[in-house]
Design a protein around this nucleic acid. Structure first.
Lengths: 209, 209
DNA sequence: TTGAAAACTACCCATTCGGGCGATTGACCG
DNA sequence: CGGTCAATCGCCCGAATGGGTAGTTTTCAA
């Protein structure tokens, strides 16, 4: 029984890159370029592509940025499989893309063979990433080693995140509510915040707990 | 100039798997098994290994679990490179390991060639993951599609996360503080929480904002 | 058209929070 | 030995929060 070719859609404003990619992919058995777009806006306006296709999306494009393009398209096509391509490894752009719904992230200087492998990986349910990028993404899970808080403060902050009040925290740590308050004041100072909500946000985003 | 072999340390309680891995890795040019341990406790007690080595750590072991072992070891050796191995793809164990400081995650039924490649990838600064696992990890960045909140409530929640108070939110959204309060009440009900801190935690952990 | 949900507004009230000021003890460091 | 910092505790007070109750209007789907 014949294997179905993997359908690929390319969105890139750079003519040379787009056509080169199309040629490489289209010329490889088992792959098929079903559509090409020269901008994110064109992609969105003209209906994108089938949900089965793997979408190669450039991140630096004039008009709608690749990241926003993914977010907009994903809201209409939740099953779309988007593989981002970029020239530089701006880590913030990576996270933005992932939050928008991209499933993989490759730098553009990736050898063609590896890129084809990545497309196939997406098609088979993986999430290919260039090594440098993967390392950074995984690093975002790691606990912050430069935690300015003392151990006791981390304990308090942990309970703060769970929505406990002075009294409850005090009882759990066998100290007075006034002391809890003192710890919280100290936490606020160190984190440069002045409310529980901000403290929780900072704690979770910077992996302090 | 001669390439230096990649040093590998193996921690696994299963004799067959451990010795098989050691044989495969040790028998491959460019790789060298520098130490083997039969449990996490043994690994920790006997000082582990050099920081240059790639550590293959089984996740299911009697005594100290692989995950805790990583966390404990990492606190002493922040530069340790740990690649987790597991038989089952328990996603929670994956996240626990990553939070503990692991740099990669492979399922045990991975073909030897791919495993060697993964070890090399760790050594070169990557973060190898089995495709199924990578997909789940990346998926954790994606916005929650089953957000029970209305659009307005999401707007309010977003500002709540930033620590804004009733008045500020009201001014930003051009509504009265009483309405903001009503929205927040509704948010609390839907998220089953009753404080800002809990709401922020729920919002960030479930990617509602 | 009827009903449900969302968005909007208002008021009361007890509790909680955040900021400011001050204080003691013990540990650790130079 | 003096200095710094973490951890502990206390008090005052104005502002913010959470819960309860009670409406109107709009919007959208059945």
């Amino acid at each position: 029984m014949a294997e179905r070719s993997i359908q690929v859609c390319i969105v890139d404003d750079d003519d040379l890159i787009r056509e080169t990619l199309a040629m490489i992919i289209g010329g490889t058995p088992g792959f098929e370029v079903v559509s090409k777009y020269t901008s994110g806006d064109e992609f969105l306006d003209q209906g994108g592509c089938t949900d089965e296709a793997v979408i190669l999306m450039d991140i630096d494009m004039p008009g709608t940025r690749g990241t926003d393009c993914v977010a907009r398209y994903k809201s209409e096509h939740p099953d779309a499989q988007v593989l981002m391509l970029t020239v530089h490894e701006d880590i913030e752009a990576v996270f933005e893309s992932l939050r928008a719904g991209a499933i993989g992230y490759m730098v553009k200087h990736t050898p063609p063979a590896r890129l084809l492998q990545a497309i196939e990986e997406v098609h088979l349910g993986g999430a290919p990433m260039s090594p440098e990028i993967a390392r950074k993404v995984i690093g975002s899970f790691h606990p912050n080693t430069q935690n300015p808080l003392s151990e006791r403060e981390v304990e308090v902050l942990r309970m703060l995140c769970d929505g406990e009040n002075y009294k409850t925290i005090a009882e759990a740590l066998f100290i007075s509510a006034n002391t809890v308050k003192a710890h919280i004041k100290s936490i606020y100072t160190k984190l440069h915040v002045n409310s529980r909500a901000q403290a929780v946000q900072t704690a979770l985003k910077n992996r302090l707990v």
